[in-house]
Design a binder for these strands. Structure first.
Lengths: 135, 135
DNA sequence: ATCTCTGCAAATGTTTTGCATCAGC
DNA sequence: GCTGATGCAAAACATTTGCAGAGAT
């Protein structure tokens, strides 16, 4: 089966490449539609699925939310989610010392860490609002 | 608005109390229906929602899966999910040192950690299988 | 010209909601 | 007897799939 290099596929890959952070299906759709409005959501789902299956992208699953996707090959890292704007960012590295969390009889093979808080932009915005609110 | 102590509500609370681990909506439904087969899934959703809103239960959101629920008041802890039997267990404590993972401009207010691996039961089962497999 | 990919719409699965009825209080 | 809770079925969402036609090779 020959894989075709369609316009839609190019756009979706480009969107993921340029984002620099994990994107939801909807974020991908909206960004891609700026280049090709007729692009449908099923195409996003199908292409993202293919990307993940081929190992070119990975799903970023945050608890309680639909998955987001980022390009593969970034090494081990985790994510930070801004509670204010809901954007998700990558963290630099990883904590160690997980072994002690669970009895010795458990075998640990992996882990998933998500930090929550506010990103610099939202913090700045909050400060500005406080400065200008009515007294 | 007076909250009524219905049979269904009692059963659902009892199921969560006796489970000792986080349960999915479906697990709750099945366990509750053993005591009252006519109990509907909408009732489970509604009661669990109420429990969470009133702070008597908390959602345990593992990445990529529907939420599970456990009773509140267990203090800060995380979860371990067995990749083999899909059961979820509580971990004792929590790691520190999250501060360094993200640039100083980020404000961290919370986090979520999930460990993956195999639980003692599944490890034991695996060992037994190896011992008895054909040579 | 072939045959995969796309876009649409229908199907699926999950969670929520409207409403008549049931049952705590 | 009020009125909140339940059970059912319909609605609302999110994701997947079938299919005819468009477009890449």
């Amino acid at each position: 089966m020959v894989i075709r290099n369609t316009k839609q596929r190019q756009i979706i890959q480009q969107v993921l490449t340029e984002a620099g952070r994990p994107l939801s299906i909807d974020e991908i759709l909206r960004a891609a539609q700026r280049q090709k409005p007729s692009l449908g959501i099923a195409t996003v789902y199908r292409n993202v699925k293919d990307l993940v299956e081929d190992g070119n992208a990975v799903a970023v699953d945050l608890p309680g939310e639909g998955p987001r996707y980022e390009l593969a090959g970034k090494g081990h890292h985790h994510h930070f989610r801004c509670s204010s704007c809901a954007k998700v960012f990558e963290t630099k590295a990883c904590i160690g010392k997980l072994r002690g969390l669970v009895p010795r009889q458990f075998e640990i093979t992996g882990h998933n860490l998500v930090l929550y808080g506010r990103c610099p932009d939202c913090l700045a915005r909050a400060k500005k609002l406080i400065g200008s609110r009515k007294k």
